[in-house]
Every structure is written in structure tokens, then in C-alpha cells.
């Protein structure tokens, strides 16, 4: 049986306390529990496995250094993905891209996609994958956090350091883009 969210939070919180005391063994357990989600998070934003690998390493070093700053006000997953988010932003800046490049995507006008085609398209895993991959980085990340990690919008807001309204808007536009993409794949056949 998979542990519930409450148990996961309690265990990870206890690990962070031990990490703050300098226990390397606790860092190992924490790494094992969260490395896949941190890596996946970074890869969704950066679309580059080498960069995502470096981010994973940097995030875990930050956990080692800063575990004592975890105050238990959020879930450990939210906290660690928040660290990852800031590392990713730094990396994007190094690449000459900024978060502002992506903000404009929130204001793109949406055409009304055909719901019937979108419904049929969503039943096919391969089409969904192709459409998710075509999303802009920030929208792909939002879909990932909402539907892969099942995070609430306040949690995503905390991770991405944006207002909750922005999270809702980005997911809304990602959803519309997916509908359009699935619809066009269906009508193109």
C-alpha cells in the first residue's frame, strides 16, 4: 500500500530534521524519495537531460545545506520543488531566456477547440504525449505539476513563485492548447 500524503509529509519532514543535524544517511533516504520528481521537474522546464541532471545535484546540495530552514509550513515536496524552480530560473537566465519570455504566453488568445475531437484525442496516449511535448515549457510544467504530481494550485503557486491567479491562467491556456492540438491531430487523420 502506498503511504498517504500525511505519512509521506511526516516521514520526509523527519528526514529533513535529521539532515539538518548532518546525517548523511537521512540525505540518502531523502534523495531516494525525491530525486525522480526533482529531475522530472527540471527536465520539463529545461528540455535538456544534462542541465536537468546538474539541477538535481544542485538541489540536493541545497537540501543538505538548508534543511534547517524547512519550517514545515508546506509539504516537503513543495519545498524541494521550490528550490528546483529557482535553480531552473537561474539556468534559464544563463541561457539568455527569462521568465518574462514565457509570461506573454498567458495572454495568447485561444481559439475554441472542438471538444468532440479533443475528447477522442485524449483517449490515445501517444497523441497526448505528442501534444504535451509541444506545449511551451512553462505550460508543460504546469500540466505536469497539476496532473502528474497532483499538486493544488496554492502549492504550484508556492513552487513557481507566482500568484495563484497566474497558475490558474497558465493551466487554463495549457488546457486550451492541448485541446487544439488533440483536435488538430484527430482532424488531420
Amino acid at each position: 500500500m502506498t503511504p498517504g500524503v500525511g505519512q509521506e509529509v511526516e516521514e520526509a519532514g523527519a528526514l529533513l530534521v535529521r539532515i539538518a543535524r548532518g546525517e548523511i544517511r537521512a540525505l540518502e533516504f531523502f534523495y531516494d524519495a525525491y530525486h525522480a520528481r526533482v529531475y522530472s521537474f527540471a527536465l520539463k522546464r529545461l528540455s535538456n537531460t544534462a542541465d536537468a541532471t546538474e539541477i538535481l545535484n544542485e538541489v540536493m546540495h541545497e537540501v543538505w545545506r538548508s534543511a534547517s530552514r524547512f519550517e514545515g509550513r508546506s509539504r516537503p515536496l513543495t519545498w524541494v520543488l521550490g528550490i528546483a524552480h529557482h535553480k531552473v530560473i537561474d539556468r534559464l537566465r544563463q541561457r539568455g531566456r527569462t521568465a518574462h519570455d514565457e509570461l506573454d504566453l498567458d495572454h495568447v488568445a485561444d481559439e475554441s477547440p472542438g471538444m468532440a475531437e479533443a475528447m477522442t484525442g485524449a483517449q490515445d496516449a501517444d497523441r497526448v504525449r505528442r501534444c504535451v511535448e509541444r506545449l511551451p515549457d512553462i505550460q508543460r510544467l504546469m500540466i505536469h505539476l497539476a496532473f502528474f504530481d497532483d499538486l493544488s494550485y496554492p502549492e504550484i503557486s508556492e513552487i513557481a513563485s507566482v500568484p495563484v491567479g497566474t497558475v490558474k491562467t497558465r493551466v487554463f491556456h495549457a488546457k486550451q492548447a492541448l485541446k487544439r492540438c488533440l483536435g488538430s491531430l484527430m482532424s488531420g487523420e
Binding site: 522530472s40 538535481l56 496516449a125 504535451v132
Partner: peptide
């Protein structure tokens, strides 16, 4: 479908 996407292989 998103949950079923091939998990990204973490190094």
C-alpha cells in the same frame, strides 16, 4: 494519460 506517460528516467 499524463500519469501514464513514460516516467522520465532519472540519472
Amino acid at each position: 494519460q499524463v500519469k501514464g506517460l513514460q516516467p522520465l528516467e532519472s540519472p
